[in-house]
């Protein structure tokens, strides 16, 4: 099966974030960070990561998660894991 493209991953991430953060109209961009979304905080950050892991069947390390700077980097990391 082919690996999804970055825009496709971003679209899936948007769905996951909308569900976990309960924000049906949320729009994610590559440069979106936790500072841009009011309901996204350190308490539910790992809930988002777990949902992404489940959706794509991948697993992240603490080191990878702590060095993410924005949604674009999460999409890149997910894509890299799918390609591995």
């Amino acid at each position: 099966m082919r690996t999804p493209t970055k825009p496709e991953i971003l679209q899936t991430l948007t769905g996951i974030f909308r569900e976990v953060l309960d924000e049906p109209s949320l729009v994610l961009r590559e440069d979106t960070t936790a500072a841009d979304v009011e309901s996204w905080d350190s308490l539910n950050h790992i809930d988002l990561i777990v949902a992404v892991e489940r959706q794509f069947g991948v697993r992240f390390t603490t080191r990878e998660v702590t060095s993410l700077k924005n949604v674009g980097e999460l999409a890149d990391l997910t894509q890299a894991k799918l390609n591995a």
């Binding site: 350190s42 950050h45 790992i46 990561i49 777990v50 992240f60 390390t61 603490t62 998660v65 702590t66």
Partner: peptide
């Protein structure tokens, strides 16, 4: 949050 909570939350996810 960065050095205790997040690693712990990852370990207990």
């Amino acid at each position: 949050g960065d050095y205790l909570f997040t690693p712990l939350r990852m370990a207990t996810r």
